[in-house]
Design a protein around this nucleic acid. Structure first.
Lengths: 344, 344
DNA sequence: CTGAAAGCGCTTACAG
DNA sequence: CTGAAAGCGCTTACAG
């Protein structure tokens, strides 16, 4: 039967006939303690199976050893990769990751934040649920825990004593690159397909699309901008909207990969051949993008690297909470694949 | 400028002119304290933005408020879903999740476990890296933290004072179902494709394949058992091994979905038409399985539900560490899709 | 080189 | 109904 009683510094000190101050010094590799004593103490620790209590130490030194990470959707590979990157960088810096997931529910997000903040993390990294009001979030976490927001902007007005750092993707430049690529291939009637008006990333991507079009002296027609929920099924269902007026677009910049895959399906059902008689691009570079038919031209944001970056920024913010941290916008890279062809 | 100093029970007690014992009682909703006092205290907490320090409370009461979760590969959607399920159930039970990821490296796994155990979690849930020696793991976490292992068995001999609970998938029954399905369709020459001999899940799946074959009085030929690393690329490269001898198999039970998708690619490259002139099955039901060409018949293990189950088992184990917990084997469900056709 | 003492933020009998 | 006291496991000046 394994002994379940936890062994403490006191147990080691008693067994060695020294004070627990000495044991503590051994723990932190202090040069003050005599080599013989050190060895005796270390042996005893091994023998009794001592394990350090970081929470108790943190209480005494008033230092945090954790960082909280709240993710809107872990089953989305983009955010899973992001989480892996955060965890990797935090571990390397000696912090442990407190995980929470909101499942895109702002109620759950409130509950999760309130619970995590009670563990007094050095900082909170939040990839927010779709609608995330900054005032509610401020109420949940209070003014004294540094916050880094990833990917989506919070909505509403921030209370006076509340501020946060931000890491986002260069949505505008990404969509501009994708549109530019289609223009280079010879397309002129290019749609912007999918996403919701009220999502900040969607607005930014549309701006990038417009930038590229206007740079080529093309004014996008209103019927080329097609709104739909950013899911595969909704996109497939909305495919028809591309073809209600002649001449129809010959290409589409899609809000993201899920939408692009749904559009691929919708086009195929109508007897079209995406990558041969219609060109389209995605955004995110999810794993399915590479193996679809056709493989999807898309924009890669390197989510794992974004995770490492978020961890670094959050820790900086924790060290220097009074500095005014400007938003950081990470670049995004075009991956050319077979879904982008010249116009028929 | 936000006030960064943390407010404590003492601050509230002083401001209200009561002792901190009283404030503590208010916190835990004790009926002992007078309603007026309670209200005064609560108002003051709101005013000062008090946030509870769970670590300090846990230290005093010797109770853990966290459970550690160590994942071998977060970028695999199967494990990401599992992690989401674990987190969901732990949060519901009032625990916070300490996340660690090993990236399939047993070195990183050791480091991560050693770090997490210092936070004295109520239990550890480990989805182990491919090679995970039980003796090393025992050394990292010591005998007093309950351990639940998910999905893969640990290798080697457990030290005398060390034991762990186990949650796995019914690999054998799953592979048997897949093989049975192919047999029903009329196949007789069925290969078992991919996976490594030394992986416990691969051995179990092969046994299920053999069960079904023998139940139909078919002795699998040695050249029908094809070993390869469980990745898409390796599987594609090994496709030729199916056809070195006549008559070649007309169907394959693949070790998992990644292997099945690789084999699909390999077959297509050779001019075959999987789902028309060759039948194959996967295992895991990853998102790509549903959208491939053809969509893949596979086995679903409901990883999110497995995560919830793991959390429940781990907490039971924590409450009653001396009980001898028998391994729990979760069922797996066949999803029929277009990749399984009758023999040509 | 080592020990006695105080304290991190909380809880819990025990008095009153 | 409320307060004084002790203690969870650790660290850190301060003496010696």
């Amino acid at each position: 039967m394994p002994s379940r009683r936890k062994v403490t510094l006191n147990d080691i000190a008693d067994a060695c006939g020294v004070s627990r101050a000495t044991v503590s010094l051994v723990l932190r590799e202090s040069p003050l303690v005599h080599p013989d004593t050190r060895q005796r103490v270390k042996d005893e620790m091994r023998r009794q199976g001592y394990v350090y209590n970081r929470a108790a130490a943190g209480l005494r030194t008033r230092t945090a050893s954790s960082v909280a990470l709240v993710i809107n959707d872990l089953s989305n590979p983009f955010f899973a990769e992001f989480a892996a990157g955060v965890d990797e960088a935090l571990a390397a810096a000696g912090y442990v990751t407190l995980l929470g997931s909101s499942g895109e529910s702002s109620e759950r997000q409130q509950a999760v934040l309130s619970s995590l903040v009670e563990h007094h993390p050095a900082a909170i990294i939040l990839s927010p649920a779709e609608v995330s009001d900054v005032a509610r979030i401020a109420r949940a976490i209070g003014p004294s825990t540094p916050l880094l927001v990833f990917n989506r902007h919070l909505t509403g007005e921030a209370p006076p004593d509340f501020s946060y750092a931000f890491l986002g993707l260069d949505n505008r430049a990404g969509a501009r690159q994708a549109t530019e690529h289609l223009l280079q291939l010879g397309h002129r009637r290019i749609a912007f397909f999918g996403g919701h008006q009220d999502s900040s990333s969607c607005r930014e991507r549309r701006l990038g699309y417009q930038d590229a079009m206007l740079a080529h002296d093309i004014r996008p027609e209103p019927q080329w901008i097609i709104e739909c929920a950013p899911t595969r099924l909704e996109a497939a269902a909305q495919t028809g909207a591309l073809f209600i007026r002649d001449p129809a677009p010959t290409a589409a910049v899609c809000y993201n990969d899920a939408v692009a895959l749904g559009l691929t399906l919708g086009l195929t059902r109508r007897g079209r051949h995406p990558g041969h008689d219609f060109a389209l691009t995605g955004f995110d570079n999810i794993p399915e993008a590479a193996v679809g038919t056709p493989p999807l031209t898309t924009l890669d944001a390197d989510p794992r690297e974004r995770g490492r970056q978020a961890a670094t920024l959050a820790l900086e913010h924790a060290r220097n909470p009074s500095a005014d941290h400007a938003p950081v916008i990470a670049p995004v890279q075009l991956i050319e694949r077979a879904s982008t062809c010249p116009p028929p």
